[in-house]
C-alpha cells in the first residue's frame, strides 16, 4: 500500500496557561483522530498565556478549519489560526548523537550550520542543528541512518513573517 503524503500544516494557538489545557487539547486531537506531527508549547509574551504550535498532515481544508474551530471552542483557547506556509517561519532544533570519522564530519559541517556540542573518543559526536524541518531531514539523510546513535527533536515552532 502506498501512503500519499499529505500537506503539512501549522496551527498557532494562544491558550490560557491553566492546568489541564494541554491535556484537553491533546485529548481532542486523539478523539478527532487528526494526524498530528508535532506539538510545541512555550510561554507567550502576556503573562499567563502559552503559545502552542501544532503541525499536522491534512489536505482537506474543511478538516483544518474543524481543528481550529474545535480549538477555539475551548474556553482556555484565546485564539487559534493557521499559519500560511509562505508567510511564516517554521523551525525546529535537533540534538544528534552519531558515530562518524572526522573527515566526513568536516564535510557535513561545511554543508550544514551545525554546532558541535561534544566529541568523544571512537568518533562519537553530539551536535546541534537548527532550521526548517527539511534541512534537518536532509542532514540526517546525508549522515546516514547507519551512523546515527540517538536523536532528539523539539518539534516545530513557528511565527508569522
Amino acid at each position: 500500500m502506498t501512503v500519499k503524503k499529505m500537506k503539512r500544516r501549522a496551527i498557532l494557538a494562544f491558550v490560557q496557561n491553566k492546568p489541564g489545557t494541554l491535556n484537553k487539547i491533546s485529548m481532542m486531537i486523539r478523539r478527532k483522530m487528526y494526524n498530528v506531527d508535532t506539538l510545541t508549547v512555550c510561554k507567550a509574551k502576556p503573562p499567563g498565556v502559552s503559545r502552542m504550535t501544532i503541525t499536522l498532515r491534512e489536505d482537506d481544508e474543511a478538516k483544518v478549519t474543524q481543528v481550529i474551530r474545535q480549538l477555539e471552542k475551548f474556553t482556555e483557547v484565546i485564539r487559534a489560526k493557521e499559519l500560511d506556509r509562505d508567510c511564516s517561519y517554521w523551525r525546529e532544533v535537533a540534538i544528534v548523537k552519531f558515530e562518524l570519522d572526522t573527515k566526513k564530519l568536516e564535510k557535513l559541517q561545511k554543508k550544514y550550520q551545525i554546532e558541535i556540542l561534544d566529541s568523544k573518543p571512537h568518533d562519537i559526536h553530539i551536535i546541534q542543528i537548527a532550521g526548517p524541518t527539511d534541512r534537518l531531514d536532509s542532514f540526517l539523510d546525508d549522515l546516514g541512518a547507519e551512523h546515527l546513535i540517538e536523536i532528539a527533536r523539539t518539534g516545530v515552532t513557528a511565527m508569522d513573517k
Binding site: A62, T65, Q66, R69, Q70, E72, K73
Partner: peptide, 11 residues
C-alpha cells in the same frame, strides 16, 4: 450558534 458545527458534515 456553535461555529464548529458549520461545514462539519455538510458543506
Amino acid at each position: 450558534i456553535d461555529p464548529s458545527e458549520l461545514d462539519k458534515n455538510v458543506k
